[in-house]
Design a protein around this nucleic acid. Structure first.
Lengths: 164, 164
DNA sequence: ATGGATGCAAAGTATTTGCAACCTG
DNA sequence: CAGGTTGCAAATACTTTGCATCCAT
């Protein structure tokens, strides 16, 4: 849980160590990324970065975010099909995600008991855990209200349904 | 946990109910899909279906698998970027995955308490769940033994590292 | 017959990459 | 200055879609 300045510092050091040059585009993109505080897509990151420097192209955003992932500063997440999301690895405590299939909203949560049970499952199978990924998909309260009662079988039959 | 014939039956009934015509391509694709027994990509499904009917195009495989997802027979899973995988919703009970980072082995497990806690988390946020994805990554017993006695700290899964 | 289904190819997304100009160190 | 970096556009990879033809009902 470092401060933003510390993270930026860390990235720049790593960049120097790797002989990576620090261009204005990188400064802008990295700054935008680590201060956004939550998941962000390349498209959105590009949009915001362009506010600070209109010359930033999406290709450079892709290249930069991929570099951040490589040096462990960003984490890539693929919430279903569509664009990937990225989040800063140092800003937040560990958390899992609740994803609304209606509006795409993402809520973070942390449930200690679930974590503990995961540890137990791992233990039962002789595994030593390194990390995990837990995503719950469903419909948020607002989307439920909005789509009213015209509820197709889309999300209704979740008994036999998907999962895993 | 229906038999393959029952599932096929079910799909055909649903098809009739929806006024969906039962072409040979569909027969072949659906049959191939429900008998494959595990995750399969569109590409692989297409490859296998063509063995039974060379006229099957990938467009039709996409259209058919999407129909299966729509009627709840198939589940789409996006393992990171790249092609999506599909699996039959009825062949297996719901399960989560324990993935060994050493040998790639995948163990399926089911933990009721975890499922219940997930439901609770969803409830707390006003979500209606449709499905979830839980994957635990770590090292299996054999790989631990093999790689020697490097007795690291039992890596907690809430470090700053990647993977929610 | 009638309208849904198919194959093909073109169009869409999301992301990467080749290249010549450009800029950091 | 050297060589990493950039924007642009073309290239990839995966999936969807328009259209003329075909076929299940």
């Amino acid at each position: 849980m470092d401060s933003l300045a510390q993270i930026l510092q860390r990235v720049r050091e790593e960049a120097r160590r790797r002989n990576v040059r620090w261009t204005n585009q990188r400064q802008v993109i990295v700054e935008t990324f680590i201060t956004c505080g939550e998941h962000i897509t390349v498209e959105e990151l590009h949009r915001r970065a362009r506010a600070a420097d209109p010359t930033v192209s999406s290709a450079t955003v892709y290249r930069t975010i991929n570099m951040l992932v490589e040096i462990g500063v960003a984490t890539k997440r693929q919430f279903g099909p569509g664009s990937a999301s990225f989040e800063c690895s140092f800003i937040k405590e560990h958390h899992d995600h609740l994803v609304c299939l209606g509006c795409g909203r993402i809520i973070e949560f942390h449930q200690d008991l679930i974590e503990q049970m995961q540890e137990q499952v791992a233990r039962e199978h002789g595994f030593r855990l390194s990390h995990h990924r837990l995503e719950l998909f469903g419909t948020c309260a607002e989307c439920q209200a909005q789509s009213g009662d015209v509820e197709d079988d889309a999300v209704a039959n979740d008994n036999t349904a998907p999962g895993s």
